[in-house]
Design a protein around this nucleic acid. Structure first.
Length: 319
DNA sequence: AAGACGAAAGTGGTTGA
DNA sequence: TCAACAACTTTCGTCTT
């Protein structure tokens, strides 16, 4: 009899599930389906505080919700009755200010409403965890308040903010994926991403290739053992500084390619390259380095032996 | 015919004078 | 601000299966 409390994969019924707490994902080890994406923010406050106090003042958790365009905290310059106490010059100034503020703030609000709707669309398309979406809207809001949207399309800033939020939460999507979902050019997203992170002083660590493995492997339909193998390879490579300065997606792709070879579920370079959003050439380069500098000879010999056995079997069949 | 391999030229971003 | 640079891409020819 099955316990009704055991969680099962809705796709294949497997109970072999893997819960990645940090990313809020539950992944089925058998079919690779991402089942649930509820996310609790475990990260720390990311703002750059001045260096002395920064060690002590880190906070946990996400602040106010930025999903609403004014967070319910709008400020307005006062109306009539506040003005009796001013002379006429000041009064004029006050009116001007008020008018100006109304124009600006309604413009920002209108823009924010549109932008957050767009953000919602894109992130649901990409199945982004909600905490990351919230982070993205926060980033967008800050950017809008700083007037960084001017001269750029709203959509591209949304895409940039989303990309930044993904990176911050170690749930990286590739630029290609975001580009596809938002229909903004990849370069454009990269540009705005760099721009807004620089202007807002958001520091982002280079992403870890390991973070891509689960998703790539699952879209390629690779076995969980292959995933762990790939991760193992990456970790080895990181130890001898083979990964620094390289594009993380390229490394992830190459590691996955090698791991698939070793575990006997070969994928072509092209297949792997396509999901990872890199070219075959990059995979080849990384792959060559991996074989050279990591002692993978033994494992490759095994692969060759297996291939020979397969060949013999085929020849027998012909006879 | 398809995949793997590698050379060569081009692209966009970073860095350091 | 410009040039050198490293990583990556595009393109293409060749070899292997």
């Amino acid at each position: 009899m099955q316990s009704m409390y055991v969680k099962r994969c809705p796709e294949c019924g497997s109970v072999n599930l893997y819960w990645n707490r940090e990313k809020g994902e539950i992944i089925c080890r058998d079919c690779g389906l991402v089942i649930e994406e509820k996310m609790i923010d475990l990260g720390r406050e990311w703002r750059e505080l001045d260096s002395e106090s920064s060690e002590h003042r880190r906070r946990a958790g996400a602040p106010l919700t930025y999903m609403q365009f004014d967070q319910g905290l709008g400020t307005e310059i006062g109306t009539k009755k506040d003005l009796f106490s001013f002379g006429s010059k000041k009064k004029n100034k006050f009116f001007r200010l008020r008018k100006w503020q109304q124009r600006v703030s309604t413009a920002i609000e209108r823009n924010l409403k549109l932008a957050l709707a767009e953000l919602r669309r894109v992130s649901s398309y990409l199945k982004i965890p909600s905490a990351v979406e919230a982070e993205a809207s926060r980033i967008y809001t800050l950017a809008a308040q700083k007037g960084l949207v001017r001269g750029r399309s709203m959509e591209s800033v949304v895409a940039g903010a989303l990309y930044a939020a993904c990176r911050r939460h170690d749930v990286p999507r590739t630029l290609d994926e975001i580009a596809e979902a938002s229909r903004i050019d990849k370069k454009e997203i990269g540009r705005t991403y760099r721009f807004i992170t620089r202007e807002l002083g958001i520091t982002i660590l280079p992403s870890n290739p390991v973070d891509y493995i689960a998703r790539f492997a699952s879209t390629l339909g690779l076995k969980p053992e292959t995933q762990s193998k790939a991760i193992e390879i990456i970790e080895k490579a990181q130890k001898i500084e083979l990964t620094s300065g390289r594009g993380p997606t390229g490394i992830a792709a190459a590691a996955l390619y090698v791991a698939a070879l070793i575990n006997g579920e070969k994928k072509t370079q092209r297949e792997v390259a396509d999901v990872a959003g890199v070219t075959e050439v990059t995979i080849r380069n990384r792959y060559k380095e991996l074989l050279e500098k990591l002692d993978l000879e033994k494992e490759m010999k095994k692969v060759k032996r297996r291939e020979e056995i397969l060949l013999k079997a085929k020849r027998k069949k012909k006879k």
